[in-house]
Design a protein around this nucleic acid. Structure first.
Length: 271
DNA sequence: ATGGTTGCGTAGCAA
């Protein structure tokens, strides 16, 4: 089973790129972030034509996440638990159950973790945005602890807005105080991994300076000034089935590209 | 050079 995550930066502005990528890459499951549209205005017909079922947790103008699946899926969670006042659409979870019963079902979540910048306010204290990010990460840790108790195969994929190490940033010194790199951010990401999750890409590639995001500004793509912030984190039961993982840089090089490129993994049908 | 680019929505925010 091929599972991919991609921050598309507006599904409507990106529709030709998304359709072309689905057609050529043919993921079984695509976890999308920053669809930047409400559920009713998601371009469903074009994507369904390619054989995908669609689940969305949309929002006007900002955020918004979606799951596309070639297999039957059932939504298990809309929005990240733990704060009823949080109205950002950043989390959607479903169980993917292939009709071929020789393939063990997989729970997936699409995650758009808050950016958190600027990390400080005028007084030098943590900004409201950064505080929101850190609380969101604490909630994700709590929810993951709950999921791990089920002993199921699951994949938490998305734009984590975290550079776990200096090797994941093109200019670590310039980003030292960035909300993606601050120690408080990195500590929480390690806490998440230390619950027992596996970063799929890092099983197969330990090189530094491999990226999934390049800013639109200052010729970042041409200069390979990027960040690695998109991940597929696997439960032990999913990691046991991990066959391969990678980053597909092609979509970032095209006309009207998203600033992120897809990250993918393949899982064996079962053990 | 304190800039630059993209998307949403049509001003200014978010990234």
């Amino acid at each position: 089973m091929k599972i991919a995550t991609w921050n598309v930066n507006s599904v409507k502005a990106r529709l030709p790129r998304v359709l072309e990528w689905l057609d050529e890459f043919k993921p079984d499951v695509a976890l999308l972030q920053e669809i930047k549209t409400e559920d009713h205005s998601f371009p469903a017909l074009e994507i369904e034509t390619l054989g995908y079922k669609i689940a969305t947790h949309g929002q006007k103008s900002y955020n918004g996440v979606a799951i596309l699946s070639r297999h039957p899926m059932a939504i298990t969670q809309t929005g990240l638990p733990g704060d009823d006042t949080d109205d950002h659409a950043r989390f959607l979870e479903a169980i993917i159950s292939p009709e071929d019963t020789s393939i063990t079902p997989v729970r997936v979540a699409t995650i758009y973790l808050p950016n958190g910048n600027p990390s400080q306010d005028e007084t030098g204290a943590k900004s409201d945005k950064y505080r929101y990010k850190l609380k969101w990460m604490d909630r994700l840790i709590k929810h993951t602890e709950k999921l791990l108790k089920t002993d199921e195969a699951f994949v938490l994929g998305g734009d984590y807005n975290v550079c776990p190490t200096d090797g994941d940033v093109y200019d670590p010194r310039a980003f030292a105080n960035d909300a993606l790199c601050r120690p408080e951010t990195r500590m929480r990401f390690r806490t998440l991994l230390n619950l027992g999750l596996t970063n799929a890409f890092r099983v197969f590639n330990n090189q530094p300076n491999v990226y999934s995001y390049w800013d639109y500004q200052r010729g970042a793509w041409a200069k390979d000034n990027g960040l690695l912030i998109d991940y597929l984190l696997l439960s032990p039961e999913a990691a046991d089935r991990l066959l391969d993982a990678g980053i597909d840089k092609k979509p970032r090089g095209r006309e009207k590209a998203s600033d992120h490129t897809p990250v993918w993994c393949t899982l064996a049908p079962g053990i």
